[in-house]
Design a protein around this nucleic acid. Structure first.
Lengths: 339, 339
DNA sequence: ACTATTTACGCAAACGATGTAGTAATATTA
DNA sequence: TAATATTACTACATCGTTTGCGTAAATAGT
C-alpha cells in the first residue's frame, strides 16, 4: 500500500541510502555489481522515487503547464495533443489550465505557477491580454514561457505561430476572386497579435484591389456567444449587408452559419464565407466550409520541442525566436462563386 | 528572481520559521497582531509556499490526474472543461494524460502515477481495457480513482455514466419509427461497458420489434480511421446494405457521412443515421445529424466533485457508487423519414 | 616498499514546510 | 497566594532524495 522508499530499499539491501540513490541514478561512484543488485531489488519492490522529495531537492518538477483559453476547441485540443506527445517522450507531465478568455483568470493562474511547480509554461494568451506585466513578472521568476498561436510580442522568448498575415491576404484574395465586393471581417477582440495580423492581411488585400475599407465591416466579437450572435445578425440584417465574410476564428463562422440559417441567407449565393478553422467536419457542413487550417498539432509539438530544448540544457532563458508554420487553404463550397 | 521562502521571511520579520508558517496557515497559536504583520510582509514579498516542500511534508499534491483516450474530441474536451472548473474551485491542479486508446500506454501512465504525484485520478479507459489489474494495482497504492463514461465495472469506486442502455433503446426505437427495417450498429471495440450497454439497448429494441438480429450488422470498429472507413464502406457497398445506422460514437458517424458521400448514398433517403455525439456543428451538417448528446461538461464536473468530496475528507477509499446522468435525444434530418 | 591514486561506499547536510513538544510570560481560578 | 490554565511564541525532528565530502581498501606508480 504505502510506497516503498529509499530507506526501506537500503535496509533490505544492507546498503546506505546514498549508495542506493546513486546506484539508481547510475552514478560512477557505485560498482557494477552493486548497481545490478540495487536495480533488481528496486524493480522487484516496485520502487519509484517520490516526486516531491526529488523535486524539492533538485528544484525540478518534471512538469510543464499549458495555459490556453479553452480546450473544447479543435485548435487547442490538437495543440495539446502535440504537446502531450512530446512531454511523454521527455518523461514530463502536463498540467492544464483554462483561462476562458478571462485575463484575470490568466493572471491568477500565472501567480499560482510562480512557485516552482512547473519547469516551464506553454501558453496562448486570452483575447484580452493587452498588458503583459503579469507575464514578464512571471519570467522574472526564472520560469521560461513559450508562446504558441496567441503570442505576446513584448515578451522575449520563443513564439510559434502560423503565417497569419499571408493567410489573411489569401483568404481575402480568394473571396475577391469569387466576386465579393463587400467583405466583412469578424474579429475576436483586437488586442492580440493574430487578430491584428489576420486583419492586416485583410486590409492589405482590400487596398490592393482598390476596395473601400469600411469601419463598420470590421466586427469586434468577443467571448459571449449571444452578443456575437446579435452582432452578426445585425451585420447580416437589412439591405446593406456584405457579400463576403472572413471569420477570424472557427466559432464565429459557426455563428454566421446559424445566423444565415435564421435569416434565410443562402451561402454561398447571397454571401460567401471563409474562416480559420480546424473543424474536422468542415467538409460535411451545409454548405461545406472553406477554411484556413492551421497545423495545430505541429504547433503544439513544436512549442513543446523548443521548450525542452532549453529545459534539457537547464536554461531558463529562452531568446527571441519566431517560428512560423504554414497554414493551408481549403477551398470548399461556402466561398465559391457559382458561375 | 529566486522565490522567497519561509526562512527569509522569518529573518526579516524577526520571527521563527514555525511562527511564520503557522501565522500563514492562520493557526490559533499565533497572536492576531503577529498574523497581520506576517501576512502583510508575505504579500509584500510575494511569498508563495513551495509546493514540493509542503507536498513532501503533508503527503498531498493538490493535484489530480485526468486520463482519457484523447482530447481532440468534443466529449472529452467538454468533460475536461468541467473537471478543470471544479479543480480550480478547489485550488487543485490538473494533470492530463492521453492514452490514444492504447492499453499499454494506459498501463505506463498509471505506473507513472503510482508515486504520490497526484491525490486522485479521474479516468475514462481505452476501448481496449478488458483487463483491470493495472487499475486495481493502482488503487492498492492508496490513490483513489473515479471513472467517467468509459468505466471499469470490476473496480470498486464511484462511476459517472450516462443512461447508455436507455439511450441505445431510444435511438434504435427512433430509427424503427422512421421506417428502418435493417439497422446496423457501429461499435468501438466491444470490451468497454458503454459499448455493451449501447449495444444491449440496440439489441433489446430490435427484439422487441421482432426484428432479426444479424451478426454482420454489428460492426466492430477500432482506432484506425482507415480501417473504420473501409469497414463502413464495405457495409454500405453492394445491394444488401442496411437502411439505418446507429453509430456508437461521433467519429463513426462522421466516417459514415464521408462514405455516403463517396458512394453517393443519400441520407436520410437511402439510409438514416443517428449517433452519440457532442458535436457543436451537428445541426449544420448536411444533412443535420441526429444525436444522442451526453452532458459531457456535467459528467466531468460531477466526477471531479465526487473525487473532491472524498479528498476533502482525506478518504482514499471511494465506495461503489453509480451516478447516471441523462443524455438527450436531438432528432434532426439525418434520421427522419420524409413522408 | 612507500607514496599517490582510484574505487566503492557511508555520513550528513541540505531542499522548504509542517507540526509536535517545549517554554517563558501572562492570566485565571480556588 | 499558590496552583493551574492560557497565550504566544521557538526549537527541532521530519518528509524522501540528492550530493559534497570523507574514508577505508584496493590498485597503481616509482
Amino acid at each position: 500500500m504505502a510506497a516503498v522508499n529509499l530507506k526501506q530499499l537500503a535496509k533490505i539491501l544492507d546498503l546506505s541510502i546514498s549508495t542506493v540513490s546513486k546506484a539508481l541514478r547510475d552514478s560512477h561512484e557505485i560498482g557494477d555489481a552493486t548497481k545490478l543488485r540495487v536495480l533488481a531489488k528496486a524493480k522487484e519492490m516496485d520502487y519509484t522515487p517520490n516526486p516531491f522529495a526529488s523535486g524539492l531537492r533538485r528544484n525540478k518538477s518534471k512538469t510543464i503547464a499549458v495555459v490556453v483559453p479553452e480546450v473544447a476547441n479543435n485548435y487547442f485540443a490538437l495543440a495539446i495533443n502535440g504537446i502531450e506527445r512530446i512531454a511523454q517522450e521527455n518523461d514530463y507531465h502536463v498540467l492544464i489550465y483554462l483561462t476562458h478568455e478571462d485575463i484575470e483568470k490568466e493572471k491568477g493562474i500565472m501567480k499560482h505557477l510562480e512557485n516552482k511547480r512547473v519547469d516551464g509554461v506553454l501558453m496562448s494568451v486570452t483575447m484580452n491580454t493587452n498588458n503583459q506585466t503579469h507575464l514578464s513578472d512571471f519570467q522574472q521568476k526564472g520560469i521560461p514561457i513559450v508562446f504558441f498561436d496567441r503570442i505576446c510580442h513584448e515578451i522575449e522568448t520563443a513564439k510559434i505561430t502560423t503565417d497569419d498575415y499571408i493567410s489573411g491576404i489569401n483568404a481575402t484574395k480568394h473571396l475577391i476572386e469569387n466576386e465579393c465586393k463587400d467583405i466583412a471581417f469578424l474579429s475576436l477582440g483586437d488586442d492580440i497579435s493574430i487578430m491584428q495580423k489576420r486583419k492586416s492581411g485583410y486590409l492589405e488585400e482590400l487596398l490592393k484591389n482598390n476596395m473601400e475599407v469600411k469601419r463598420e465591416r470590421i466586427i469586434k466579437c468577443g467571448n459571449d456567444e449571444e452578443i456575437n450572435y446579435n452582432l452578426v445578425k445585425k451585420l447580416l440584417s437589412g439591405k446593406n449587408k456584405p457579400d463576403g465574410i472572413f471569420a477570424s476564428v472557427e466559432k464565429l463562422a459557426i455563428t454566421t452559419y446559424q445566423v444565415c440559417r435564421e435569416l434565410n441567407i443562402n451561402i454561398p449565393n447571397d454571401i460567401k464565407i471563409i474562416c480559420f478553422s480546424n473543424l474536422e467536419t468542415a467538409s460535411l457542413l451545409s454548405p461545406s466550409l472553406s477554411t484556413i487550417t492551421q497545423p495545430a498539432y505541429n504547433i503544439g509539438k513544436t512549442a513543446a520541442e523548443v521548450m525542452f530544448k532549453y529545459l534539457d540544457k537547464n536554461k531558463t532563458y529562452i531568446p527571441n525566436e519566431n517560428i512560423v508554420l504554414q497554414s493551408t487553404l481549403h477551398i470548399r463550397e461556402s466561398s465559391q462563386h457559382i458561375v
